[in-house]
Design a protein around this nucleic acid. Structure first.
Lengths: 339, 339
DNA sequence: CTGAAAGCGCTTACAG
DNA sequence: CTGAAAGCGCTTACAG
């Protein structure tokens, strides 16, 4: 027996047929306990492992999930958004718990990702993670649905799309954090973050911000676009300052944006939170180390990973599942001026 | 043609044999350009993708790399070390650049990882990433070598082991940061971090710390163990304080440890850096947001991912490669009391 | 440059 | 409970 042992080698040693080895190793109930024990013992001794390519080919599923991470407009090689990195960790754990392998891939929105994984039978299903420009995404999305690909997406539900989406309650989060600032006496509250069609999650946070203001009889004071990057937050805050918009608080669409905005404000000699209160969204690790520490909205990353995987599992095995919105939670630290 | 198209479907439509389709799609030079064009065009129209399970089975390689992330003694479900998360991002990018798929898996040091991937032909090679307890690792390591598994490891080279290792120059990093503190006039400098056999990287940082002190005619003032976690750093610093060890600086074996130590010092009413200077290692995102921002040693994560993947590639295709040490770089921020 | 044949190592009917 | 046969969809000799 040269090279790696096969099921035929085990069969010969165990004195049974090769299919019986296959059944025994998979724990089929139609194999006698004695046979199963003998086969498993021999397999163990020979360090035999089932060839996944062969078994996947025959059984027509791979027991593998693919995580496709598609990134912002600026997919430079620098840094991945820390929130997605945390999601990646959580998803990896959740797939392992369910006995799947996980294939991870960075994607450009423009590439062929929509066909590459399930079509080539590398994966039984896809997890889509990213802030995608929705207009661009929609064509591909239609293809996925049409081809019967199993997939779940992280983000916001889009009306009229039957896909399974798991996401945070961004609107409630934006509402909670804005209400918190209002309760602390802030009145001229601005917002930093994209609110266009390409950024539905930021948009929902913005909508929650507007809701809270209107409930309090206030108006949105100002809004500046920014993608989820420190530099974008920095630039947006500088714009606020240059234009002399007098704000006493800024709700930022993400922690990275807030950290960038904080840098701009402090550089301009303003005190956070005394002159301007500042809040983030995500609760990435760095948020609690900002100076002052950032009041923010926690996204439950652990639940997110668990739900994405379990729903994809249902889609694969039961043919259906439903979207779900995960509650968010306000974390009050010093940047909002509480206490 | 029900279900997904196969190479036979393409062959029939193109009026050639099925092996010719296979060759044309792989860009074999022994196919006429006309045939190749015709086949590729038909494949595109039908949205045909080569079945990876079949091609892997036949060709006996998977074009997939597996990243096995094995974690610290306390593999709770909480959080993955941010440095490893950054490495994960970098490795994912590097594998994609080389056309490999990446399988990601968390491993317990105690589990069967050493056989599970290459043996089952899920991957052509393994990337091992983690602070492993070396004693535990060695048995498995021997098995990997013995079975001819292709693998590279992140970390420190171990004498007498022929494996390919990529890692930072931890000793030089520990030396540089300690020398920096000495240059600023600090004299009683402690160290927080494990230095046992199970933590070779922390140990190397410690050795560099000792080197720098001795060169300056100083002695290591104190050392406390800590794994790479905020809480461990916090506990270690509290121990220093309780025991009344008078220190004017502490070199921490990682940023997470330093952040925890900073919390303990500040809680005790000490000023960083005025009373005690503090330094980290890794340069995770949170390091620059600590208060005060953390002087630390940068590990070149991008180079790390690139080298791990290219060396594993060489191992797979040329049968050999060599270990490499990546230079580190000191980043001076305020926690060390400079400027 | 192309085709007919074989075979990678399994799992799945089917038969007993 | 077990086995003989077939076949998943490719790639690889081999022949021409």
């Amino acid at each position: 027996m040269a090279g790696k042992p096969t099921s035929f080698d085990i069969a010969e040693l165990a004195g049974v047929s090769q299919p019986t080895v296959s059944r025994a190793l998979r724990g089929s109930p139609s194999v006698s306990e004695a046979t199963r024990h003998r086969v498993q013992e021999i397999a163990r001794q020979l360090n035999y492992k089932v060839d996944k390519n062969a078994s996947n080919l025959r059984s027509r599923h791979s027991n593998t999930l693919a995580l496709l991470l598609f990134e912002d407009p600026t997919p430079d090689d620098s840094m991945i958004n820390p929130f997605f990195l945390a999601m990646l960790g959580s998803i990896t754990r959740a797939t392992a718990r369910r006995g799947y392998d996980l294939l991870v891939s960075f994607q450009q929105l423009s590439s062929d990702w929509h066909t590459d994984y399930e079509d080539s039978r590398k994966a039984d299903g896809l997890i889509l993670l990213g802030y995608g420009d929705y207009r661009d995404y929609q064509e591909r999305h239609a293809r996925l649905v049409e081809q019967g690909t199993h997939f779940v997406r992280w983000g916001s539900e889009e009306p009229g799309h039957p896909e399974v989406v798991v996401g945070s309650d961004n609107r409630a989060g934006g509402h909670a954090v804005t209400q918190h600032l209002i309760g602390l006496g802030r009145r001229r509250i601005g917002f930093i973050g994209e609110i266009g069609i390409g950024s539905p999650e930021f948009r929902a946070r913005y909508d929650g911000y507007c809701d809270a203001l209107r409930e309090a009889g206030l108006e949105p004071a100002a809004q500046y676009p920014a993608h989820n990057a420190e530099e974008d937050g920095n630039v947006a805050a500088r714009n606020f300052l240059e234009q002399g918009v007098g704000l006493d608080a800024i709700v930022c669409a993400s922690d990275m944006i807030a950290i960038g905005a904080m840098r701009a404000l402090q550089k301009a000699g303003l005190k956070v939170p005394d002159d301007v209160a500042l809040t983030g969204f995500d609760d990435i690790l760095a948020a609690s180390f900002a100076n002052p520490p950032l009041t923010t909205v926690v996204q439950d990353v652990r639940a997110a990973g668990e739900l994405l995987v379990s729903k994809l599992h249902d889609l694969i095995h039961k043919g259906q599942s439903v979207s779900e919105v995960i509650p968010t939670r306000l974390v009050v630290r010093q940047s909002s001026g509480a206490g």
